[in-house]
């Protein structure tokens, strides 16, 4: 594996190479196996995210399978640079050059490094999890303005949405944002009647109970209306009425049967949401994914973790 030539290993060169791409500094110093292990450390992220998307959401899964691997890769990147520096420093001036100690190989690996992690991240974003920032108040008080959420995209492959699920979907209208986040209140075949504040599913009015403001301590500054618990098919979730001028959301009474493979969606902040009351039911194929986690809540961190109603 060597050509008999010797050369000094320069510590700052080893460190710079490692900063350019984790592991190259080790390869430069003759530690090819360790170098390759460090080089491919980014594969931990898609693997762990894939596992996380298939198991039951929990705070432990979010930390252990999503946030920890990302942190680990960052630590590995920094460790690789400082370790390569130390190895080169200890190595002295009589390092025997190996066949792979070639500038062209370093440049090739650096070029691939700049492309492959980005492809892996883009792949995870496209098929497994996508993060969204909420710029509006349409889902207050469940998911509030400024929250960063993680949407499970594999979920739509596994099941059809149920009443009470919070989903992200493509905006069916040409104006406004690219995607919306709303709650499924009725599924295919359901008859939904909305008159003013009253919502009826299959002839049964959805019950509401007032939420004491004290129980919404972390998000009090986001509550400008009257919060309620709404019950729908055994699920209970938070909704809000009275936030904003009623004229903004005034719609004609609705009485429709949700078509096959469609769902009817409403924002939880009923007076500040543009939803199926305006653009009708949404085809299930337009749903991007299910909201699994709030990974960066605005204000109080007590809402960090699994999204719960």
């Amino acid at each position: 594996m060597s050509d008999g030539n010797t050369s000094r290993r320069v510590p700052w060169v080893a460190m710079s190479l490692s900063f350019l791409s984790a592991g190259i500094g080790h390869i430069y110093c003759g530690r090819i196996y360790k170098g390759l292990l460090l080089y491919f450390s980014w594969f931990v992220i898609p693997l762990s995210c894939f596992i996380a998307a298939f198991v039951e959401p929990s705070a432990g899964v979010l930390i252990g399978f999503v946030l920890l691997p990302v942190t680990l890769v960052m630590i590995i990147y920094l460790y690789a640079a400082f370790d390569a520096y130390e190895i080169a420093k200890r190595g002295g001036s009589d390092y025997e050059l190996k066949d792979y100690n070639r500038a062209i190989l370093y440049w090739l690996l650096i070029f691939v490094w700049l492309a492959y992690p980005i492809s892996l991240i883009a792949g995870v974003r496209e098929f497994v999890y996508e993060a969204f920032y909420l710029p509006t108040r349409s889902m207050n008080p469940s998911v509030v303005q400024g929250d960063r959420i993680l949407v499970n995209k594999l979920w739509v492959q596994k099941q059809f949405p149920e009443r009470g699920d919070v989903v992200v979907f493509r905006n069916p209208e040409p104006t406004g944002g690219r995607v919306f986040i709303e709650r499924v209140v009725a599924v295919a075949g359901d008859r939904i009647v909305i008159k003013g504040d009253e919502v009826e599913i299959n002839g049964k009015r959805l019950e509401r109970n007032r939420i004491p403001l004290e129980s919404l301590d972390g998000i009090r500054d986001q509550i400008d209306g009257d919060p309620f618990y709404e019950s729908n098919s055994g699920k209970r979730y938070k909704v809000m009425y009275g936030d904003g001028p009623a004229a903004e959301i005034e719609t004609d009474p609705i009485d429709i049967v949700v078509p096959p493979r469609n769902v009817f969606l409403l924002g939880d902040n009923r007076d500040r949401s543009r939803d199926s009351r305006h653009f009708g039911p949404i085809h299930a194929g337009d749903i991007i994914g299910h909201v699994d986690y709030i990974f960066y809540p605005t204000g109080n961190w007590s809402r960090f973790g699994v999204y719960r109603d």
């Binding site: 460190m15 710079s16 190479l17 490692s18 900063f19 350019l20 791409s21 984790a22 980014w42 960052m74 990147y77 640079a81 650096i110 490094w113 700049l114 992690p117 980005i118 991240i121």
Partner: peptide, 10 residues
């Protein structure tokens, strides 16, 4: 400079 280039995936 190497750090700035290499950390672009982050």
């Amino acid at each position: 400079a190497a750090f700035l280039v290499g950390s672009s995936p982050f």
